[in-house]
């Protein structure tokens, strides 16, 4: 029988392959469940944070593309957003996995160099790509909506001052877009983190039983036939994660709104809106 401290030492980083090799098989303690599920949370944070950062950049491009007058830029952006927002994330995961598996195992020859492809079928890369594209589409739509609702007066004022082109975008449009979009974007970020729990249930295998928080919770629920312990533990961790996100995004929101009189500041209201 291990003490709780030994369990934490053994399993705290189990999900990334550090520590005990075998998962507990009998005599499951509360400590084991808390440690292992918490360990799995590393993957949720990794997927969520990486997809959010990469997706933010691409979403800006998508929103600008969708606003653009040139149909060669507008149409691809519209279609991209439509495909990723119109279909379930679950199906996207399956589809991406099946597509990535079909890549030649030995790698692809490009200009005499052999590009390895096997890493793409691993969850850390393949699932991240899907999550990145998915959140970029949702965020792109949010940013597009915000770009469209920039007050006309702001743009006219910029014209009056002779601010045009790139500097108008960078100094007037983009900050205003971000400020208007931020409450919705906070929601998107929260539900992106929630969506990361789908990864190991959708084709991508958990290599050497290294999975995310829900993967371990599901493991315990299957082994003990008792859903009343592991699932509330994951729920607890996710509530903490959500509160942390609200804190972080709220701080950014205050900064984005700091120049406005207090009664016109936009406030973040948490609305559950997205299951992909």
């Amino acid at each position: 029988m291990m003490t709780c401290w030994e369990t934490i030492q053994g399993y705290a980083f189990r999900s990334i392959g550090i520590g005990e090799n075998l998962l507990p098989r009998s005599d499951f303690t509360l400590c084991q469940q808390f440690t292992l599920i918490g360990s799995g949370l590393i993957w949720n944070v990794y997927f969520g944070a990486m997809a959010l950062i990469l997706g933010f950049v691409f979403a800006n491009a998508l929103a600008m593309g969708k606003m653009h007058r040139n149909p060669w830029l507008r149409k691809p952006a519209e279609w991209f957003i439509f495909v990723f927002r119109g279909s379930p994330l679950f199906i996207q995961f399956f589809l991406a996995y099946e597509a990535l598996v079909l890549l030649p195992r030995a790698g692809i020859e490009i200009l005499g160099l052999t590009v390895q492809t096997s890493w793409l079928t691993k969850a850390w890369a393949g699932a991240l790509i899907v999550l990145f594209l998915n959140t970029a589409a949702y965020t792109g739509e949010i940013f597009y909506g915000a770009l469209r609702s920039i007050p006309k007066g702001d743009l006219e004022a910029a014209d009056a001052y002779g601010i045009t082109g790139w500097s108008r975008f960078r100094r007037i449009q983009w900050p205003t877009m971000l400020r208007l979009a931020w409450p919705s974007y906070t929601n998107e970020a929260i539900f992106l983190f929630h969506a990361t729990t789908l990864v190991f249930f959708s084709g991508f295998p958990a290599f050497q039983q290294r999975g995310d928080a829900l993967y371990y919770a599901n493991y315990f629920a299957d082994k003990t036939f008792n859903p009343f312990v592991p699932y509330p533990i994951v729920a607890f961790y996710f509530i903490l994660l959500t509160l942390l996100l609200i804190g972080l995004f709220g701080a950014v929101n205050r900064r984005l709104n700091r120049h406005l009189p207090t009664n016109t500041r936009s406030r973040i209201r948490l609305r559950p809106q997205l299951i992909r």
Binding site: H194, A195, T197, L198, F201, L214, A217, N218, A221, F225, P227, F228, Y231, V234, A235, F238, I239, T242, L243, L270, P272, I275
Partner: peptide
């Protein structure tokens, strides 16, 4: 209920919990 916790957790939870 649905604000802070991923919905898929509820899906996995309720199916067993209801059955039991």
């Amino acid at each position: 209920m649905v604000r802070g916790v991923p919905d898929i957790i509820y899906f996995l939870f309720f199916v067993i919990a209801l059955d039991q």
